[in-house]
C-alpha cells in the first residue's frame, strides 16, 4: 500500500498524530497528503493549463518537510488525469505556472501581495491566515490536522472549491475581509 494511504489510514485509525519528533513528522506527512487531495476538490479555470496533460504544479515555501513528503506522495500519481509536480519556492519567487502554493508558517506574512492573483490556490498553516488572504488554512484540532476554508476568496481568483470539501472544513469563512 502506498505511503499516502498508509498515512491516512494510520491517522484515521489512531485518530491522533502521536508525540514528539514522530508526531511532527506525522503532521508534515498528513499536511502533504491534504495538499495532494485538495487537487480533487478544487476547480481551476481552463486557462490555468496550456494542454490537457499539463501537470498540476504545487509550490511549497518555507516548509521543507512538507515539500519532501509531498514529493514522495505525488511520485507516479495523477490527480484528475494530470501528473503532479512539486516545486520548492522562495519568498519572492515568481509564481507563474503554479496552481497551488503552500506557505509554511514562517513565511505567511508576505501573503497579502499575492491575494487576487488568478488561479492560484493559497494554502497556509498559520492561525488567522484566512484574514490575510489565504484560501485554505491547515490547523491542528485535538491533535488532528483539520482545515478552514474561505471559498469566496478563492472565487475571486477564479477558483471553485467543492462543497464536499467545505462539508469537511473546520469552519468556512463566508465573508471576505
Amino acid at each position: 500500500m502506498r505511503t499516502f494511504h498508509r498515512l491516512v489510514v494510520l491517522a484515521a485509525a489512531t485518530g491522533l498524530l502521536g508525540t514528539g519528533v514522530a508526531r511532527a513528522q506525522m503532521e508534515h506527512e498528513v499536511k502533504a497528503a491534504h495538499l495532494f487531495k485538495f487537487l480533487s476538490y478544487v476547480d481551476w479555470p481552463a486557462a490555468a493549463f496550456e494542454g490537457t496533460r499539463d501537470p498540476f504544479v504545487i509550490g511549497v515555501i518555507d516548509a521543507e518537510e512538507v515539500r519532501a513528503s509531498l514529493a514522495d506522495i505525488v511520485r507516479g500519481r495523477e490527480a484528475r488525469g494530470r501528473p503532479v509536480e512539486v516545486r520548492r519556492l522562495e519568498s519572492g519567487d515568481a509564481t507563474e505556472g503554479v496552481h497551488v502554493l503552500f506557505i509554511g508558517r514562517p513565511a505567511s506574512e508576505p501573503l497579502l501581495r499575492l491575494v487576487g492573483r488568478p488561479a492560484l490556490l493559497l494554502v497556509t498553516e498559520a492561525e488567522g491566515a484566512l484574514d490575510r488572504g489565504a484560501m485554505i488554512n491547515l490547523m491542528l484540532v485535538d491533535d488532528r490536522v483539520r482545515f478552514e476554508v474561505a471559498p469566496q476568496v478563492a472565487e475571486r481568483s477564479g477558483l471553485h472549491i467543492s462543497s464536499r470539501l467545505l462539508v469537511l472544513a473546520q469552519s468556512v469563512r463566508t465573508v471576505a475581509p
Partner: peptide, 14 residues
Amino acid sequence: RASAPALTFADRKE
C-alpha cells in the same frame, strides 16, 4: 460517494 471526502480526509465525524 458522499462519504468519499470524509474517507479521503479521514474525517470520522463527518
